[in-house]
């Protein structure tokens, strides 16, 4: 048995927004429930009102429009694993979604929930940050769109009002000559919290050189961090094993500075090198030594 609360199941987004605007605090929005329900059980939350939006199918759509990929906030992680729009360079979205929790969690949990919970280890965040995603938020009175990297607070958490609903996340589709990947390091291979995660997006010029590289790391701070020093090293270069060594070293240094004297620092600043190596090699095999490709 969980703490007592009133429960509402609005039939449309509009109805949900109206309800949210009128209900007294404390109130909570229920999407998938995979984080909310255990928190209620552990007595960490005592909402008076819970508004469930899980049934709003209008918020589950995944589509491509005018060069944008739009993902409804209620799309379950397992819905993100297969669609063709997450093949190729965009596969980092599918790779991240496919490694969240276990299959049951992926069937229930939503991308919107993952974003709003804004856990430092939230697996969808690094890929979305690397893709330059924006989130669209609605309230009864109107809506706003904001870059995900700004939506996530520097000290953790998400900048969302109790009356707001995150309805959609979107990012510009990558050009044809681009690559992307995601790597997660957990203590075990499923139902594991990321100890470190990394997402990369690489855009090439017509000569196969890196025109732009983005590398976002998870679980090394309150929110995903980009690594400008590593990105700068990659820019204008052709992917090669020697270049990778430089990049990996710079990622290690950057994370060492970020984590400072935290107890996990000595492990993470070393391990992040391996994660950075894997994510770049996975995105572009030219980062591998010839032996590794066959092995």
């Amino acid at each position: 048995m969980l703490p007592s609360f009133n429960y509402y199941q609005p039939a449309s987004l509009q109805e949900a927004l109206t309800l949210l605007a009128s209900l007294p605090r404390p109130k909570k929005l229920l999407a998938g429930g995979t984080d909310l329900v255990p928190a209620l059980r552990r007595g960490e939350l005592y909402p008076a009102n819970v508004v469930s939006i899980s049934g709003l199918s209008e918020m589950k759509e995944i589509k491509m429009e005018r060069g944008l990929i739009l993902i409804g906030a209620l799309a379950a992680f397992s819905d993100l694993v297969c669609p063709p729009c997450f093949e190729g360079a965009h596969r980092l979205v599918a790779e991240a979604a496919g490694q969240i929790g276990g299959p049951q969690i992926r069937n229930q949990g939503t991308i919107g929930g993952n974003i709003v919970n804004a856990s430092p280890a939230g697996d969808m965040l690094p890929p979305l940050v690397a893709l330059g995603a924006r989130v669209r938020l609605c309230r009864e009175a109107g809506e706003r769109a904001v870059f995900l990297s700004d939506f996530l607070g520097d000290a953790g958490g998400a900048c969302i009002a109790p009356e707001e609903i995150l309805v959609e996340v979107s990012f510009p589709a990558l050009p044809v000559n681009a690559a992307g990947s995601f790597v997660k390091l957990g203590r075990r291979n499923s139902l594991a919290i990321s100890r470190i995660s990394a997402a990369t997006v690489i855009i090439y010029d017509s000569y196969g050189r890196i025109e732009e590289a983005r590398l976002a790391l998870g679980s090394v701070g309150p929110k995903p961090v980009r690594v400008p020093s590593a990105e700068a090293l990659l820019k204008g270069q052709k992917p090669a094993p020697d270049l990778l060594e430089e990049v990996v070293a710079s990622v290690g240094e950057a994370v060492g500075v970020l984590l400072g004297s935290r107890s996990s620092a000595s492990y993470k600043k070393a391990a992040v090198r391996g994660v950075a190596r894997q994510v770049l090699q996975k995105a572009d095999p030219r980062f591998m030594n010839s032996g590794e490709i066959n092995g």
């Binding site: 390091l185 492990y267 070393a270 391990a271 090198r273 391996g274 994660v275 190596r277």
Partner: peptide, 9 residues
Amino acid sequence: VKVDTETGK
């Protein structure tokens, strides 16, 4: 076993 010497896994 195989040990990943970068991540310790």
